[in-house]
């Protein structure tokens, strides 16, 4: 197998694996935090605004992890800086 095809195969596999795990684990974390927020909401419905606000901020924090994975995967697929070494 030539260097180039090995590079393409491995970067595609790595990107797919990265996006799979990078979506799975933040999804678990988001589900966990939403279920906790629902419990808190059923216990104290009057604190709805504060709970919703901190839930949204927490979800944004967790979501940004998945977004980092996406950005890195896009870099690996479209703008891989290591490709230069192979082409020269």
């Amino acid at each position: 197998m030539s260097d180039m095809s090995f590079f393409v195969t491995s970067s595609t596999v790595a990107a797919l694996a990265a996006i799979a795990f990078g979506v799975m684990i933040p999804a678990l974390a988001m589900g966990w935090s939403i279920s906790k927020a629902m419990e808190a909401l059923s216990r104290q419905p009057e604190a709805e605004k504060a709970i919703t606000r901190s839930l949204f901020i927490g979800l944004a924090m967790i979501e940004s992890l998945a977004i980092y994975v996406l950005v890195i995967v896009l870099i690996v697929l479209f703008r891989n800086p290591l490709l230069e070494y192979l082409l020269n």
Binding site: S64, I67, Y68, L70, V71
Partner: peptide, 13 residues
């Protein structure tokens, strides 16, 4: 950095 990347990544994706 996270603030910038979060918004950019969300809209782009």
């Amino acid at each position: 950095v996270a603030l910038a990347i979060r918004l950019f990544g969300n809209m782009m994706s």
